[in-house]
Amino acid sequence: MTAAATGAALRRFVFDDELTIVTAAEHRDRLLAFLRDGSGVRVDLSGITDLDTAGLQVLLLARDEGVRRHLPVEFVEPSPAVADVLALTRLEL
């Protein structure tokens, strides 16, 4: 996972591996740290190779934390693994 500045308001957060129970806590902490600094985040989902319910919870937590902090959280470029889970659960991020 990498992070890069993409403008004053939103920073880019990139997943580049699985988002599962094995990696969820680490990814959660890094993603929430982005929101703690007071800027929004654009979350690039294109590199997620596997997504389970623990990973989905991380994404939903980030969305909800953005709402709580009044910060934009955008999810972009869902990988096939992410698209499959979203279709199965009928969720929109």
Rank of each mutant, 00 (worst) to 15 (best):
H27A: 15
T20P: 05
I21E: 10
G7M: 03
T20V: 13
A87W: 12
D52C: 09
H27L: 06
L56Y: 10
A24G: 14
R12A: 06
A4M: 01
L45H: 01
R63A: 11
V67P: 02
L88D: 02
L31N: 00
G40C: 03
A62L: 11
A3Q: 09
T20S: 15
G55M: 05
V41P: 03
A24C: 13
Q57T: 07
E18P: 04
V85I: 15
A25F: 00
P78N: 06
S46A: 13
L86Y: 12
V82I: 04
L10T: 00
G66Y: 01
L71C: 08
V85S: 05
T89M: 11
L31D: 01
I48P: 08
A25I: 11
A62R: 10
E92K: 14
T23A: 08
L93E: 03
S39Q: 07
L35C: 02
T53I: 12
I48H: 09
S79H: 02
I48G: 10
T23Y: 12
L32R: 07
L93S: 02
L71A: 03
V67M: 05
D52T: 12
V22F: 15
G38T: 10
I21F: 11
R42K: 09
V76F: 08
S79L: 06
D50F: 13
L60H: 08
T6V: 08
E26M: 08
A54V: 14
R36E: 15
E92Y: 08
